[in-house]
Design a protein around this nucleic acid. Structure first.
Length: 923
DNA sequence: TCAGTCACG
DNA sequence: GACGTACGTGACTGAT
């Protein structure tokens, strides 16, 4: 029997070469696809190799994931001045993954390693097993690896490269190539080498002396001249270069060798991929594809017109209750290379109980696998169903198969549920996130709404299945046939949405934000939700009791002053008491005829120096309000949120809740835990670490102002941040010519006003000055910082033209009211549009930091550091006390460099870190 | 279900 | 001249 033969494809290297060799082709959707076309054709060629006697039995595509590797630690200039990839190549990177998936091949990439290192490690492991290895690449660095049993294959020239090719090109054997490359250096990668030494001299030196160290040792004895001097003077650079060109061959393999076995290419996903891009000649080779020209045609971007799918047929859905049927579904999904899925649970949140799983592979081809139906209710009979552990044992390989794309709608939730069952889910697409990236601001992204919008289909309402109010049942009590109709429909609709939304990503230019920001975050958030954070119930109970006593006391006093008992919590009653009964002046009624009693209004009254009983009462009402708020929203409610299983509180993050791209947190909201007042801060002290651990809080300092300085190009602000100056002092100096407490406070207010889109009245209200004065101040700000004026003008003109704003990472937010004929609607949209790119870019950056944090900590040997919370510009971690000092620099680095390499900022990102036994203490 | 209020960045 | 004129959230309360 022939031995195994592993093909390792250097995907990253290939795409750059293909980009420069092939014309700038565009597919029918207007997407640049030249390199993708070349890459696809290359995979095709490799697929043909399978049939040859010596062909591959195992294959993987290896890609570069991170820009930061151990080589950057050795030499900070390594690859530092590489120009960013060409604009029209960037969107092609994610398409490479799509192409790879269409061929059902695993994609290997790992944070902290270059593709070359992974290739070297896989090659070494395979050779050790006695396998043959072929590296599909023509990269000179990889030629070092050539040895008996390992060759290279340059698909562009159709050439096999063995040791003789290395001798021909460099004059040395492959095992000496590293030494030659080190002496030569590489200007593209910024490997320094030795000045004046090129390939010829390098190979001569190495042939003569053996390796770099021997050359350096012999240098003093060489004949006097430039070469000798350079070798002596740059010896250290030569040694460094030797380390830089060395390939790491002991990287832990992300996927075991056996998983790279070729399984054949399922036709459907490949056809879908080729069809999407209009790669006609390849389609023809697949058989049945239309004729016509070979290369994709240049064409303007247009909306994708898919033929309408058949309507949802609920009777076509299958209830899967035996293993044979389940195996058929797993097999079909594996063959297709993608599957839509959904989980049904009792209750909500990451800690809910799994009741069933649905799958869909094509419109109306969907099933429901009941797992936890019946059971704890005597009235409902337990239907026949596969025991959960058996079903999951069959489903686990599917959910974990790197060659099968799992499509979910709000997949974060399903990943949590399955994760608790020991099943990880990867790779994942999420139609809710896709919709958000495409259409944020236009409509919601719930499945029911999207089904109505895109599919003209109205989904079975959940409450029609489980009922409402007292008679509401758990999903496990829903009869099997009905549960199947509902659950399988969800998977079916998810699949249909995916077929509509996925092809829109690239032509609408949101591939980058989807692939680089939001999609990688889905499993990360899932993990954070499952992790939860420990809350000290007794501490909260103590606070509740304490607040309660004060509230009762205040209530008595307020009623005594009013002379009549009333509901203090009713703004209507309170307004009537204050302004009518007690005769306080300045009461303003809103359109509903109720006096305003918000905190601004009450504080205005409370500030009255010679206040009568009314003023005294208002002060007590303010205290009462604060304590009631803290008690009802935090100290009482949070106790109820502690889950018995974990003793921790598990929030749920919404990726699609905030129009700007921020996350939001709910059930409970852990992004608005008090901090600004003393009473409130005590609530933060109830968020604690497990024994032996501490909490670490890391926050970006002034990130939005820094981004404004970069995006609006304000030199004074930029330089102040570079110097590390106090930014509000700087603004005060610019605006008022002197810095004191008052001018700093006013400057701070104006700086924030700028971020939020300013109006003279708004600023006037905040600063308690006349609108005219506020306007003068705004004018002065614009005169000192003209970049801000330009930024606002450009942002507005662009949002008026396109209807959306974009962040530095390409995130869109749509503003349909930007053209409203109602002035205050239009002006509101304008203010939001000015803010959205800044707030959104900040959100993009921290999201990237979050996606990179886990791998970075793991690579640093800190697997026990857990990321628990995100609060817009802050990340909260729990970690063993002994890990703190090692974790700090890793966290700091990941956060500070999170924009790179996609975006290069002209201001540094400052990160502040604190630790303590409680969240309060970590600040 | 809405409006008002207030906790956070 | 008015817009309860700063952006983005979620939870709770009382009133309907």
């Amino acid at each position: 029997m022939a031995s195994n033969h592993l093909y390792l494809v250097d995907g990253s290297g290939y795409i750059f070469r293909a980009y420069h060799r092939l014309p700038p082709l565009t597919n029918k959707h207007g997407e640049p696809v030249g390199a993708v076309y070349g890459y696809t054709a290359m995979l095709w060629k490799l697929a043909d190799e399978v049939h040859k006697a010596d062909g591959p039995t195992h294959m993987a595509v290896v890609l570069d994931k991170s820009s930061h590797t151990f080589r950057n630690e050795l030499y900070d200039k390594y690859k530092a001045q590489r120009p960013p990839p060409p604009e029209d190549l960037i969107p092609q990177f994610p398409m490479i993954r799509d192409a790879t998936r269409a061929f059902s091949l695993p994609c290997i990439e790992e944070e902290g390693w270059e593709a070359d290192d992974l290739i070297a490690s896989y090659a070494k492991a395979a050779l050790a097993q006695g396998w043959q290895v072929t590296i599909v690449s023509s990269d000179k660095d990889l030629m070092q690896l050539i040895e008996p049993g390992l060759d290279m294959y340059d698909t562009m020239n159709n050439r096999r490269l063995g040791a003789e090719a290395v001798v021909e090109k460099f004059g040395v054997m492959p095992h000496q190539l590293g030494d030659v490359l080190a002496l030569m250096g590489d200007s593209v990668d910024n490997v320094p080498g030795v000045p004046g030494v090129g390939p010829k001299t390098a190979s001569k030196l190495i042939l003569e002396h053996g390796d770099v160290e021997a050359v350096l040792a012999a240098a003093p004895t060489m004949k006097a001249g430039k070469l000798r001097d350079n070798l002596i003077e740059h010896a250290e650079m030569a040694r460094l270069s030797r380390k830089l060109v060395e390939l790491a061959s002991n990287v832990p393999l992300p996927d075991p060798l056996e998983d790279l076995a070729l399984k054949g290419i399922p036709e459907a996903p490949l056809r879908a991929f080729l069809d999407h891009h209009g790669f006609k000649s390849l389609l023809m080779r697949l058989g049945g594809g239309g004729g016509g020209v070979d290369a994709p045609q240049p064409a303007p971007a247009s909306t994708i017109e898919l033929p309408a799918d058949p309507p949802c047929d609920h009777d076509a859905y299958e209830s899967v209750t035996d293993l044979a049927a389940l195996d058929r579904w797993v097999e079909e999904a594996t063959a297709r290379g993608f599957v839509a899925f959904d989980t049904e649970t009792d209750g909500l949140g990451a800690m809910a109980r799994l009741v069933g799983i649905s799958l869909a592979t094509a419109p109306n081809r969907a099933c429901y696998i009941p797992l936890g139906h019946g059971g704890n209710d005597l009235l409902s009979e337990t239907p026949e169903q596969i025991p959960t552990d058996q079903a999951l044992a069959r489903l686990k390989p599917l959910f974990e198969d790197p060659a099968v794309l799992k499509i979910g709608h709000n997949a974060k939730y399903d990943i949590s549920i399955l994760g608790r069952q020991g099943v990880s889910v990867t790779p994942v697409d999420d139609t809710m996130v896709m919709s958000f990236n495409l259409d944020a601001g236009l409509h919601g992204h719930g499945m029911d709404e999207l089904a109505a919008t895109h599919l003209d289909h109205s989904c079975i309402a959940f409450k029609d299945v489980v009922g409402t109010g007292k008679s509401q049942k758990g999903f496990h009590e829903v009869p099997l046939r009905e549960a199947t109709r509902y659950a399988a429909e969800d998977a079916d609709v998810t699949l249909r949405l995916w077929r509509r939304l996925k092809p829109r990503l690239s032509p609408e230019h949101v591939t980058r934000v989807y692939e680089m920001v939001d999609r990688p975050l889905v499993p990360v958030l899932s993990g954070m939700e499952r992790e939860g954070i420990k809350v000290d119930r007794e501490e909260l109970a103590r606070l509740s009791a304490e607040f309660s006593g004060q509230i009762v006391e205040l209530e008595k006093e307020i009623h005594a002053i009013a002379g009549v008992p009333f509901t203090i919590g009713s703004p209507k009653q309170l307004g009537d008491i204050l302004f009518d009964r007690m005769g306080l002046k300045g009461g303003r009624k809103g359109k509903s005829g109720v006096y305003s009693t918000d905190v601004n209004e009450l504080e205005r009254i409370a500030a009255d120096k010679d206040g009568g009983p009314g003023v005294e009462m208002v002060r007590k009402v303010l205290d009462w309000r604060q304590l009631s708020k803290l008690k009802s929203t935090y100290t009482d409610s949070l106790q109820a949120e502690i889950k018995a299983e974990t003793g921790r509180v598990h929030t749920s993050y919404s990726l699609t809740g905030a129009q700007t791209g921020r996350l939001s947190s709910n059930d409970p909201n852990l992004q608005n835990i008090p901090i600004r007042t003393e009473a409130g801060r005590r609530i933060r002290d109830a968020f604690v670490a497990e024994p032996g651990n501490v909490l670490l809080s890391a926050d970006y300092s002034q990130i939005e102002l820094r981004l404004a300085a970069h995006m609006a190009d304000v030199p004074q602000l930029r330089e102040a941040f570079l110097r590390g100056d106090d930014i509000h002092n700087m603004t005060a100096q610019e605006l008022f010519g002197e810095v004191n407490r008052d001018t700093r406070a006013r400057a701070k207010t104006i700086n924030f006003a700028i971020l939020y889109g300013i109006s003279r009245w708004g600023l006037a209200g905040r600063l308690e000055i006349a609108p005219d004065e506020a306007q003068a101040m705004i004018d002065r700000y614009f005169d000192r910082f003209p970049g801000i004026r330009n930024y606002i003008a450009e942002t507005l003109s662009s949002v008026r033209e396109c209807g959306f704003t974009t962040t530095l990472f390409g995130r869109k937010t749509h503003f349909s009211r930007i053209k409203s004929s109602v002035q205050h609607e239009r002006q509101g949209a304008e203010r939001a549009a000015i803010n959205a790119p800044i707030q959104g870019t900040s959100a993009d950056i921290i999201k990237r930091a979050m996606a990179r944090m886990g791998p970075a900590l793991r690579d640093a040997g800190l697997p026990d550091v857990k990321m628990l919370l995100q609060v817009h510009d802050e990340l909260v971690f729990e970690l063993p006390e002994g890990d703190v000092e090692r974790a700090k620099p890793v966290i700091e680095r990941v956060m500070a460099t999170a924009a790179e390499p996609a975006v290069t900022l002209s201001v540094p990102l400052g990160v502040e870190i604190g630790t303590g036994l409680s969240w309060g203490a970590a600040h």
